[in-house]
């Protein structure tokens, strides 16, 4: 679905601010996959995902989406952006509409939806994000709480019904329940077949959401593979300057006492197993 071949990018090259943000990265994301992208601050995560819908073009290397070369003149970037929905970091800072409805409708409208189709898309995405659509549609998006704003912003991308959903740190700044709601939604969407790319600082979330993890360090891809392998290897995780998920720390301790304990991706799985599981 998304393929990057030897992609590199330097920001502001030729000035004193020159910064090599992405260094020779190749990767391939298949349809229906769920991939988490982790890495320290400034490691190039946000830059990387902006290749996925053609917002930035690499200095060298190629980007393909659904087989189309994004560097080619014939490629319609708008249809690429419909296919790959990208939720920016702090997306609520881009609000401009008078009502929640208009805000969420902005994307699908640009994609050519109108009338009932448009309304259905907006209604569906609002309820996907846990709202009662008729309650919020006519409110001002600026008057909502931080968590609600975030969900509205995500709804505005979902409303375009993209095949691939890319979210750049969607959980940062959310409260506990807002975060859980979102994580559950993402896992569920992926189960239903939507391709998911999830950028996060929170290692527990990465482990819970995706079986595959891509780790970035200083613009280079330093790991790409099974998230269980990654997070159970302290050497790998600490080497990149990240932390082992809390669940994995607990799981490792428990595993010593209960050798039959299977790998757990979330605290909920762990608790379920300990209290409801077959062996104790």
């Amino acid at each position: 679905m998304i393929v990057l071949e030897n992609v590199s990018l330097t920001y502001d090259s030729g000035t004193i601010f020159q910064k090599a943000a992405i260094k020779n990265v190749s990767l391939s994301i298949r349809k229906g996959e769920s991939v988490s992208i982790v890495g320290k601050i400034g490691s190039g995560k946000s830059t990387l995902v902006q290749f996925f819908n053609g917002l930035i073009k690499p200095d060298s290397g190629k980007v393909f989406v659904g087989g189309e070369d994004l560097g080619s003149k014939e490629t319609n970037l708008k249809s690429v952006r419909r296919k790959v929905g990208l939720v920016f970091q702090y997306p609520e800072e881009q609000f401009f509409a008078e009502t929640v409805f208009d805000e969420v409708a902005f994307g699908p409208k640009n994609m050519g939806l109108s009338g009932k189709e448009l309304k259905d898309a907006v209604w569906q995405s609002l309820s996907d994000m846990g709202f009662n659509p008729s309650d919020v549609a006519n409110l001002s998006p600026f008057g909502l709480s931080g968590g609600e704003k975030r969900r509205i912003a995500i709804a505005s991308i979902i409303a375009m019904n993209p095949e691939v959903l890319v979210l750049d740190e969607p959980t940062s700044g959310l409260d506990y329940t807002g975060r859980n709601l979102l994580i559950e939604y993402l896992k569920n969407e992926n189960k239903k077949g939507r391709t998911l790319v999830f950028v996060t600082h929170n290692m527990d979330e990465a482990l819970e959401v995706s079986r595959r993890v891509i780790a970035m360090k200083d613009g280079k891809k330093v790991f790409d593979g099974n998230s269980e392998d990654f997070f159970t290897s302290e050497e790998l995780v600490y080497g990149i300057g990240l932390d082992v998920p809390f669940v994995v720390k607990v799981w490792k301790k428990l595993k010593k006492r209960f050798p039959e304990l299977p790998f757990c991706r979330s605290s909920k799985e762990l608790v379920d197993f300990l209290y409801g599981g077959p062996a104790r």
Partner: peptide
Amino acid sequence: RIMKAQMSRGAEFNKGSLVNRARSFLP
């Protein structure tokens, strides 16, 4: 950043008539 985010939502900043173009800068 805002421009890129709105482009992710399908916005185009350099298409159409002058009026349309001016309006497209609102977001």
